[in-house]
Amino acid sequence: MDEGRPIFLQIAEQLENAIVDGSLAEGAQAPSTTELAAFHRINPATAGKGVNQLVSDGILQKRRGIGMFVAEGARGVLMERRRHAFAEQFVVPLVSEARKLGFDAEELKNMIDKSGQGVTQEGKR
C-alpha cells in the first residue's frame, strides 16, 4: 500500500487490475471485505469502501448472502476507461520528459517503434 493515498482507492485499483489482466475473471467471486482487510492489514470498513466503489460502478455485483462477483462485461468497461485515460496518464508525461531531454519527434517515434516490436502482434487481440 502507498501510505500517502486513500487506501480504499488502492483496493479498488488492485481489484480492477486483477480484472483487466484476467486473474479475476468475469463471473468469478471477488475476495470478501474481511479477506481483503486481513490480507492487507487494513480496517474492514476501508476495504468495504473500495469494494463498494466497484459495486456502484457496476464492475462488481452483490449477490445477497453469497458475496461479490465480477459482472459480465466488466473487463471491457475497465479496458475502455483505461484507454481513455492512456494519453493523459502515459503519453503526456512521456512527451514532456522527452522534450526536457531534447529528443525530437522523430527520435521519440523511433524509440517507440523499437520498444513496440512484439507489442504490435499482441495488441491486435
Binding site: 471485505t33 474481511t34 482487510a37 486481513a38 492489514r41 487494513i42 480496517n43 474492514p44
Partner: peptide, 13 residues
C-alpha cells in the same frame, strides 16, 4: 506486533 495487528483486525471484523 504483526500477530497483534492481524488478530485485532480479524476479531474486529
Amino acid at each position: 506486533r504483526q500477530l497483534f495487528y492481524g488478530r485485532l483486525i480479524a476479531d474486529y471484523a
